[in-house]
């Protein structure tokens, strides 16, 4: 089971700034181990973030996205205390979902 995503979301003036780091090896299928054997591809193919029922951000990934993908985006419509749910599925069909609470930005 993959480790939980680290998600920070701060709302200021109606705009929620989301920064997230997603623990995942994102193996490209191009690398070889020390015996020269190809390490099989294993990467997140799709990720989305929901605010309630609404998908506020979604991404399709190929193998060029870095290990432990980092993402930053901003959206309107959330308030401090609201919950966000982030979910991903990878090339092996493994999945993970995590929640985060929107914080009011420090003044």
């Amino acid at each position: 089971m993959a480790n939980p995503m680290r998600i920070r979301a701060d709302v200021r003036d109606g705009l929620t700034d989301v920064r997230m780091q997603v623990p995942h090896p994102m193996e490209s299928g191009q690398r070889k181990d020390d015996k020269g054997a190809i390490i099989p591809a294993h990467f997140i193919t799709r990720l989305e973030v929901r605010h309630g029922e609404r998908v506020v951000f979604s991404a399709e990934f190929g193998p060029s996205v870095s290990a432990n993908p980092f993402l930053r985006f901003r959206f309107k419509g959330a308030a401090a205390g609201d919950r966000l749910v982030a979910s991903w599925v990878d090339s092996r069909g493994e999945t993970r979902s995590d929640e985060a609470q929107v914080a009011g930005a420090a003044a």
């Binding site: 609404r54 506020v56 951000f57 991404a59 190929g62 193998p63 309107k76």
Partner: peptide
């Protein structure tokens, strides 16, 4: 594989 990522930007997202 040149295509790294495709992001969908719904209404309300910057």
């Amino acid at each position: 594989f040149p295509l790294a990522a495709v992001f969908s930007i719904p209404e309300g997202t910057q």
